[in-house]
Design a protein around this nucleic acid. Structure first.
Length: 813
DNA sequence: TTTAGGG
DNA sequence: CCCTAAA
């Protein structure tokens, strides 16, 4: 009996026995031999053998209150025996709050109270007042008052209690308890009591006693560990001595500590009041007030257990206080929900929700209590069953607790993970993209959502499991049906009334409604996408600048050659196929030649390719889409034509690098490319190219396919040629900025620019002017001479070649 | 860097 | 047009 709840017992008795018999039983218990109670105490460890008194007691109170119904009663009995007056009034009130302590007394006192509103003739004035005023409903309030009163009384009247014959043990325990209780206002009834005590002043013996009685040995320790925070919160005012202990515990439950004790208390009280059903109370009164008390106590105990479990879980899981708090609240909520009547339950829940955090817990507890009260009459069976389940869990010794806790924890984690996955999947979240921020944010949302949903679970369901509110067709917030907004996210089960959104409903579209969680995470995802796009465009921009800056110069051809070979021979990814097609059709000869050339050149090409792959991003770049390839081709060609100013290029390149760096790009790629190229290959020129060529630097993410010279190019050039002597494509930009080029692959071969007659004439003219017999032909001078006439793409080499061709065509014998 | 020359 | 080599 001492091990476990008295609930079942009481309930059973309640149902099976008539009032008279019950009263007898009560009396018997109350008048039970002290030794018996003493033994209970000893065994339970309440009296002091076991645990650190202070700490243990508090926990015990809560825990024990639930299970060791006996202890409470016994002790109470002791107290009550001598002090009916004192005890019955005040204790009775307290008993509601406190689980086990008062059961017996409660029975008596309560009965008295209710049956004869002014039962406690001997009771203290305060007590009497309370009782008489409030009756059953006031339990909570009364409790508070009583607590206060009790405290005061005890302090003031403490002598009475003591004198009344309260056990010294109790007193001691009570002291300890009181301290603890102060700390741990979290405890259900006790909380209120404690809180009151705290608020009002130093804990009184009475309160302590009650608490101590309630406390059970087994649970004391665990709870302490877990609950500490509560204590801290609540205990702000008066518990300094316990700070040490508390401090230890604090670490665990930070999440809980946030709320304000005062608020909590107030809410708690309100909840209690609200929760206590009048009718039920009356019924209970008839049966036995004591039983009610016990039930409450049990409930409280259950709550307590839940809290502990939650605390454990929370502390272990994620270390996120928020989550923990939520989960706790949730569990508690569960208990309350099911059997509470719609009206009461809803109100309670809402209020609790609004309060959140710690308040929630308290409320839940309250709810639970409430439920319990009702349960006996209506759904006693189910209720009891549930209670048992929960209680068993709770009631188990440390190890068991751990087990269950673990179990819950695991479950919780699983659920959480699942939810996270869902959320992420549903929202196409780029978790790993740009740093941790999004990731964290999304996870945080997921956590909170999870916690939120769990906090709405009903008692019967697995507290840690997620409830599908869609199926329930009930508002997540108010638990009522009606016109509900269903979150558009598939994996999201959130259903809520528009009115329950609390925040701007305008934010949410009715037709395509996303719950606040999903909406926010979606928004984040969007921002991520946009950000990604920005980064891409930025890269492209940088690349563009880079390219523009890049100097093609005469070596341009060289590079393109190289690249071409690279693509062809290397079979550069998919792009090759396309390119090959085009190339084969139009420029077979060239390819072959180039191929051979490539071989001769050595592995420079290969190395180039490697350099591209540096940073691991390159590979992707190789793979391009055909369309993009074509587009890019032109651009690239254009670009190449234009380049000729190295200095400019270098400057621009630097700028581009800077940009890339600013983006967080790893410039290593560029560096690497340079290094590897230069070192591994004898071909200086190729190396130069690599170094300078922005291509290497280009972010491959752009996915611009490599451009291959193809029939298209020819066509284009020809067309242009037809249009005008000089094609824009070939414009050699001497200014700093070149025409844009695609950031992709280097162009294989520059576009052929047919010579115009004007150019030919200029060439002839120039040659006439500058050529000196027996001297090297001054192509450079000629070029400069006709700079304004020659196509920008013309180089000295071109002039030479052209001249040669002209000479061939029209040999001057 | 400029030129010459082979392809 | 491209590429290499020599000056």
């Amino acid at each position: 009996m001492w091990k476990w709840d008295i609930h079942p017992f009481i309930a059973h008795k309640r149902c099976s026995l008539d009032k008279h018999t019950l009263q007898k039983l009560k009396d018997a218990i109350l008048s039970g031999s002290p030794s018996f109670f003493a033994s209970l105490k000893d065994q339970s460890g309440l009296s002091g053998g076991y645990q650190p008194e202070s700490v243990v007691k508090v926990d015990d109170d809560k825990c024990n209150s639930i299970k060791p119904g006996f202890d409470g009663p016994d002790r109470n009995a002791h107290i009550s025996e001598g002090n009916d007056q004192l005890i019955s009034p005040a204790p009775g009130d307290i008993s509601y709050l406190l689980p086990s302590d008062l059961p017996n007394e409660d029975l008596l006192s309560v009965n008295r109270k209710r049956s004869a509103t002014t039962d406690s003739a001997g009771g203290k004035s305060s007590k009497d007042q309370i009782i008489s005023k409030n009756g059953c409903n006031n339990h909570l309030k009364t409790v508070k008052k009583h607590k206060n009163d009790v405290i005061h009384n005890k302090q003031d009247l403490g002598g009475k209690l003591i004198s009344s014959g309260v056990n010294e043990e109790l007193e001691d325990a009570s002291k300890v308890v009181a301290q603890e209780s102060e700390r741990e206002s979290c405890c259900l009834d006790k909380n209120t009591h404690v809180a009151d005590v705290e608020l009002h002043g130093p804990p009184a013996d009475d309160s302590n006693e009650h608490i101590s009685d309630l406390v059970g040995p087994t649970e004391v320790l665990p709870r302490e560990n877990q609950v500490p925070h509560f204590d801290n919160k609540l205990s702000n005012d008066e518990e300094h001595g316990q700070e040490n202990e508390i401090g230890e515990l604090k670490g665990d439950m930070q999440g809980f500590s946030n709320k304000k004790s005062s608020e909590n208390m107030d809410n708690f009280e309100q909840d209690i009041q609200e929760n206590v059903p009048n009718g039920e109370e009356e019924e209970n009164l008839h049966l036995s007030n004591g039983s009610q008390c016990t039930y409450r106590q049990d409930c409280l105990a259950t709550k307590w257990r839940d809290l502990i479990l939650l605390a454990n879980i929370s502390s272990r899981i994620l270390q996120s206080s928020e989550v923990l708090g939520c989960s706790l609240g949730k569990q508690t909520c569960l208990g309350g929900m099911e059997q509470i009547e719609p009206g009461d339950g809803n109100n309670k829940f809402i209020s609790s929700e609004a309060l959140g955090g710690r308040d929630e817990i308290l409320h839940h507890e309250t709810q639970v209590c409430h439920r319990s009260t009702k349960a006996p009459n209506k759904n006693s069976d189910e209720e009891q069953g549930r209670k048992y389940d929960s209680e068993n869990v709770v009631g188990e010794e440390g190890p068991c607790k751990l087990k269950t806790t673990k179990k819950y924890m695991d479950k919780f984690e699983q659920n959480f993970d699942r939810d996270m996955r869902n959320i992420c999947e549903a929202k196409d979240v780029y978790i790993s993209i740009d740093g941790d921020w999004y990731h964290k944010e999304l996870i945080d949302i997921a956590k909170k959502k999870k916690a939120f949903l769990s906090s709405r679970c009903t008692y019967g369901q697995d507290s840690l499991a997620t409830i599908d509110w869609r199926e329930l067709n009930a508002c997540v917030k108010c638990h009522k049906a009606g016109k509900l907004l269903v979150c558009n996210t598939k994996s999201c089960q959130l259903v809520i009334h528009e009115n329950c959104l609390s925040s701007d409903a305008k934010l949410y579209k009715r037709r395509k409604f996303y719950c606040p969680f999903c909406a926010h995470s979606r928004a984040i995802s969007k921002s991520v996408k946009i950000k990604k796009k920005v980064s891409l465009t930025r890269k492209a921009y940088a690349t563009f600048i880079c390219w523009g800056a890049r100097k093609e110069s005469e070596k341009q051809s060289y590079r393109s050659y190289k690249i071409k070979h690279f693509e062809q021979d290397e079979g550069l990814r998919q792009s090759n196929k396309l390119n090959n097609k085009d190339v084969n059709g139009s420029t077979n000869d060239h390819q072959h030649k180039r191929k051979s050339g490539y071989e001769q050149a050595g592995h420079s090409v290969l190395s180039f390719g490697d350099s591209l792959t540096c940073g691991g991003k390159t590979v992707a770049s190789a793979n391009g889409t055909p369309d993009s390839l074509k587009k890019d081709k032109q651009e690239e060609r254009n670009t190449e034509r234009m380049s000729q100013t190295q200095r400019v290029r270098c400057g621009d390149q630097m700028a581009a690098l800077a940009i890339l760096k600013s983006q967080g790009e790893n410039p290593s790629c560029q560096v690497r490319g340079k290094g590897s190229e230069g070192e591994s290959h004898a071909d200086i020129r190729s190396r130069k190219r690599v170094l300078c060529s922005p291509e290497t630097d280009l972010p491959h993410e752009c996915n611009f396919p490599p451009v291959t010279e193809s029939a298209d190019a020819k066509e284009i050039s020809e067309e242009e040629n037809a249009n005008s002597g000089a094609s824009k494509y070939f414009v050699r930009v001497q200014s700093h900025k070149r025409q844009h080029s695609s950031p992709t692959f280097p162009q294989l071969r520059r576009i052929r620019v047919p010579w115009t007659t004007a150019e030919e004439e200029a060439l002839k003219e120039g040659m006439r002017k500058f050529s000196t017999p027996h001297d090297r032909l001054p192509w450079k001078k000629v070029l400069e001479f006709g700079a304004n006439i020659f196509n920008e793409s013309r180089s000295t080499v071109d002039l030479k070649d052209k001249w040669r061709n002209l000479s061939k065509a029209t040999p001057k014998p």
